[in-house]
């Protein structure tokens, strides 16, 4: 460490003890990074929600221009998404017991539910009697649900990717389960966003 002056040396406390940690790699911070990413993601949704609420508050469109929305199908879709969140959580327990088969089962069901949700959404779209550019509420409706749907799609693809990788023996284990945790966390996020969105768009 040449170059540092004599008096700087006094300021450096050098820890003399040997560390206890003997793992070769530094801890895995990817989940932490994912949480940071999800903070950013939630801010996009927050911004769009705020825009939607402001449009509602200030728009001079007459009330009857507000899109008419059926509640049944989206209600079922909401149930599907919420239950899938509980189901994917089971995978967490499975992997703690190194039960890859269990993970595959729960992930498989979750992916299926996600696909059903998307199908439901496409069906809903095709039965609505207003179009994307009809008015500002129609536009926000499609934009918010579509943007969320895109996230569901990404979530499903992530789950499928984990499933694909889990075929390989030992790819995931109790110690190495980032993919599983990440997919689950993302799925919960998508779920929470949907609940807020459902309240704002359908119930309020």
């Amino acid at each position: 460490m040449q170059g540092s002056t004599a008096d700087t040396e006094t300021m450096m406390n050098v820890a003399g003890t040997t560390a206890v940690d003997h793992h070769a790699d530094h801890p895995d911070f990817r989940i932490f990074g994912l949480i940071m990413f999800l903070i950013a993601e939630s801010m996009i949704f927050l911004g769009l929600f705020a825009a939607y609420l402001t449009f509602r508050a200030v728009s001079t469109l007459p009330e009857d221009q507000m899109p008419e929305l059926e509640l049944l199908l989206p209600g079922i879709n909401t149930m599907i998404l919420i239950s899938s969140s509980f189901i994917i959580h089971q995978a967490e327990d499975s992997i703690k017991e190194n039960d890859i088969k269990g993970v595959q089962k729960w992930f498989g069901i979750s992916a299926l539910l996600g696909i059903i949700f998307l199908g439901g959404q496409v069906f809903e779209y095709s039965n609505l009697d207003f179009g994307l550019t009809d008015n500002i509420f129609a536009s926000t409706f499609y934009l918010l649900t579509g943007f969320h749907g895109l996230h569901v799609l990404v979530g499903v693809l992530t789950i499928l990717a984990v499933l694909w990788r889990s075929r390989e023996e030992g790819h995931y284990s109790e110690e190495s389960k980032f993919g599983i945790e990440a997919a689950e966390l993302y799925w919960h996020f998508v779920d929470v966003v949907w609940i807020i969105l459902f309240i704002l768009l359908y119930l309020l």
């Binding site: 460490m1 540092s4 040396e9 450096m12 050098v14 820890a15 003399g16 040997t18 560390a19 940690d21 003997h22 793992h23 070769a24 530094h26």
Partner: peptide, 9 residues
């Protein structure tokens, strides 16, 4: 500063 620290960064 001459001591080295045997820990993993």
């Amino acid at each position: 500063m001459t001591q080295t620290v045997q820990e993993n960064l």
